[in-house]
Nucleic acid binder design. Structure first.
Lengths: 180, 180
DNA sequence: TGCAACATGTAAGAGGTTACATGATTAC
DNA sequence: GTAATCATGTAACCTCTTACATGTTGCA
């Protein structure tokens, strides 16, 4: 059995919702999974070719004609279930903001403050996005069976953004203490 | 000017606290920066060689002798300040747990529940770690000037863990609704 | 004496991004 | 007609991890 591929999981997953072109696949991943997943063109097309070779997806219309739609096969759905059941791979932590704050004495209090303010603003923006997204998903009646699961991921984003905002405010108070 | 390197930032940063061997460097990064940063051996040694070539660190004792200590130079400290001042690079999001929950209808409610329970347990464990870490850092009088900054990163970890716990509990309630 | 931990490095390869090349279709 | 968008793919390159090879030091 081929080894687990996270890209295959994302691509098969997206195609399990509805058939689409490679281009639309990328847009869907960016717009729908964007707050917790990403794939680039350089990954998507080779993945589709590989999945086609394995008969996990089917292509209708030729690539030359400018546009071909990919549909997940029954074997593809089985493979998707298999991939989803594999242990979650935790990506090694790499948080550039925390690295800078850790060396805050060298970076300087003012620069730290700016980074924290920017992080808070970004979290506020994300919070608004999640609010809008939750309403939008709730209104899509054609995906009613998926909706509760999708709301879980939106809720996770919201909790994360709120935590960032609370932390940032605590941070700014602490940095005031340091500056004094 | 050489382009920004995140690994150089982490290595120079760690050496700015105290001189050490490559091996100790890896242990320090894992134990001290571990909850928000990681570097592997395969990155650290080439980075040290490159930094030595650029005269940003100095090696005392030869590699052949089995052990050499690396010390940051004045130019190294300047370079570190420069690197810390560069814009934070945001890594593309890749959250395997969220991807699985998003396709929860295919994965199944029970498997989702197990993933969420595991995520909550992990967050609880991290919370205890942060509590211990905060006390430990507060007790290290030799790093008094760095301490407030280090506490900021610990506080971020704590907020993040707490958010995960709150989310997980909400999640389990929502999954009960779905299962019913 | 032999094992565990300390220490340094290299090589192979997976995985991923970016830029480029190319062309079709649609809207103005 | 021409610009923007849709669409497919490749190539170069970079980063990072893993496994391997090698040797030293301390200690039970």
């Amino acid at each position: 059995m081929a080894r687990a591929s996270q890209t295959h999981m994302a691509v098969l997953g997206a195609l399990s919702i509805e058939p689409m072109t490679g281009y639309a696949l990328r847009e869907t991943i960016r717009d729908v999974l964007g707050h917790f997943w990403s794939e680039s063109f350089g990954q998507i097309y080779p993945a589709l070719a590989e999945l086609e070779r394995l008969e996990l997806v089917e292509r209708s219309g030729s690539a030359k004609a400018g546009s071909s739609t990919f549909t997940i096969t029954a074997a593809g759905r089985r493979r998707l279930r298999e991939l989803l059941g594999e242990p979650v791979q935790v990506a090694p932590a790499r948080n550039g903001l925390m690295l800078r704050l850790f060396f805050g004495r060298t970076l300087g209090v003012e620069a730290c403050r700016e980074l924290v303010v920017a992080a808070e603003a970004d979290a506020q923006r994300r919070l608004l996005e999640f609010d809008a997204l939750a309403v939008q998903v709730a209104g899509e009646t054609q995906h009613a069976a998926d909706e509760p699961f999708w709301q879980l991921t939106i809720s996770a984003g919201r909790h994360s953004a709120q935590a960032t905002i609370a932390w940032a405010q605590e941070c700014l108070a602490a940095l005031d203490e340091v500056a004094r």
